[in-house]
C-alpha cells in the first residue's frame, strides 16, 4: 500500500499563505532538520503528544518534515484520565483528519489503585500518572527516541537541556554529564536500552509558538480562547467546573466568568486566567504585555525551585 497523499500537494499549493518571516522560518527549519535526523538515525522513534499548543506545533512540523510522506512514527498520549474533555475530543479529530497512528497509555497501576489528584496530592499523582506512566509506555514500545515539545524558555533546568537529551535505560537524565552538542551535528549513538529525548522546539519561546500557530493556521484546543465558562476557585487557581468528578469542597461555589487557559494539562491542576482574548491576535497582544510566565498556572511547578529538574531526572518529560 502506498502512503503518499496525492491530494495534499494540490491542496497546499492552492492555499498560498504569505511566507513566514525569517525569524519563524529559521525556527521551523531547525525543527524540521531535527525531526529528519532522528527519524533517520533511530530505529523506533515516537512522538509525545500532549494535545496542547506546543504539541500542536510539534505535530505540524512533523507533517511538514516528512511531506509528501506520512509521519513515520506513532504519537504517544500519556493519559491520566483527568484531561479536559475538550482535549480528548480534539485529539481524536486530529488523529483522524491527519491519518496518524496514536498510542494511548494510562498507568494501569494508577487506574487500579484509583490514583487521583484529589486523593493523592499533585506531586504523587504526577509521579505515578505521568512520570511512571511515560516510562511504562516507552518501555512497552521499546522506543529508542522520543520527541517532546519542551522549550528551553519554559523553566531554568530546561534551559540547560540538549536538543538530543540522553537517557539511561531507566530513563534518567544526568544534567551534570550531558554530551557536548556542537553546531547542528547531533550524536545519536546509543546502546541497547538507552534512549534519547529529542526537542525540536528547544529554541522557541511562547510568543514564537503563538505567532507560528497564527501564521500557519494550526488548529488548537478551543480552551485556549476566552469564553464564558464555569469554574471554582481552589488554592488560588480557577479550576474548570465541568467534569462531574469535581466535588465542591466546603465553602466553594461554582462561578461563571470569561476565562481561558494559557497551558493545558489535567483539569484539576490547571488554573485558568481571566482574559477576553478570543482570537490569536488577542492572545499574542496579551502575551506581549503579560507579567507572569505561563508556568504560573501549573500546580506541579510551584512546589519548589528545582522541582522540574528533580522530576526530569526521574524520567518526566
Amino acid at each position: 500500500m502506498s502512503d503518499i497523499r496525492p491530494e495534499a500537494e494540490a491542496k497546499h499549493s492552492a492555499t498560498q499563505k504569505p511566507p513566514l518571516d525569517p525569524h519563524l522560518k529559521a525556527l521551523e527549519n531547525e525543527a524540521i532538520h531535527i525531526f529528519r535526523e532522528v527519524a533517520a538515525e533511530f530505529e523506533r522513534p515516537v512522538m509525545l503528544y500532549s494535545i496542547g499548543k506546543d504539541s500542536s506545533v510539534l505535530l505540524h512540523l512533523a507533517r511538514k518534515a516528512f511531506y509528501p510522506g506520512r509521519v513515520p512514527f506513532p504519537l504517544l498520549h500519556v493519559n491520566t484520565g483527568w484531561k479536559f474533555a475538550e482535549m480528548i475530543a480534539f485529539r481524536d479529530k486530529i488523529v483522524k483528519d491527519y491519518d496518524l497512528d496514536l498510542i494511548e497509555h494510562i498507568n494501569p497501576r494508577g487506574a487500579a489503585e484509583n490514583v487521583t489528584p484529589f486523593t493523592h496530592g499533585s506531586a504523587l499523582y504526577t509521579d505515578i500518572m505521568k512520570t511512571e506512566a511515560l516510562r511504562q509506555a516507552l518501555d512497552a514500545g521499546k522506543f529508542d527516541a522520543a520527541f517532546g515539545g519542551a522549550r528551553r524558555d519554559e523553566e531554568a533546568s530546561r534551559a540547560k537541556e540538549r536538543i538530543y537529551s540522553f537517557r539511561t535505560p531507566d530513563h534518567r537524565w544526568d544534567p551534570r554529564n550531558q554530551r557536548p552538542e556542537l553546531w547542528n551535528i547531533y550524536n545519536g549513538m546509543i546502546r541497547n536500552g538507552e534512549s534519547v529525548r529529542a526537542f525540536p522546539l528547544s529554541n522557541w519561546t511562547e510568543v514564537d509558538i503563538w505567532r507560528y500557530i497564527q501564521a500557519e493556521d494550526i488548529p488548537i484546543v478551543p480552551l485556549y480562547f476566552a469564553e464564558k465558562r464555569p469554574y471554582v476557585e481552589r488554592d488560588g487557581m480557577m479550576i474548570l467546573a465541568e467534569d462531574p468528578r469535581l466535588e465542591l469542597l466546603p465553602g466553594e461555589v461554582k462561578q461563571e466568568g470569561v476565562i481561558r487557559f494559557r497551558t493545558l494539562g489535567c483539569f484539576p491542576l490547571t488554573g485558568a486566567i481571566r482574559s477576553t482574548a478570543t482570537t490569536l491576535d488577542d492572545i499574542i497582544a496579551e502575551l506581549e504585555t503579560a507579567t507572569v510566565s505561563e508556568r504560573q498556572g501549573r500546580a506541579i511547578d510551584r512546589d519548589q525551585s528545582g522541582s522540574m529538574e528533580k522530576k526530569k531526572r526521574e524520567g518526566y518529560f
Binding site: E233, G236, M237, T289, V292
Partner: peptide, 16 residues
C-alpha cells in the same frame, strides 16, 4: 507578585 492567577487580569486596552 500576585500570589494567585485569579488576581491576574489582562486588559486588551494596553495593546502590544
Amino acid at each position: 507578585v500576585s500570589a494567585t492567577a485569579t488576581a491576574e487580569v489582562f486588559s486588551l486596552e494596553e495593546t502590544a
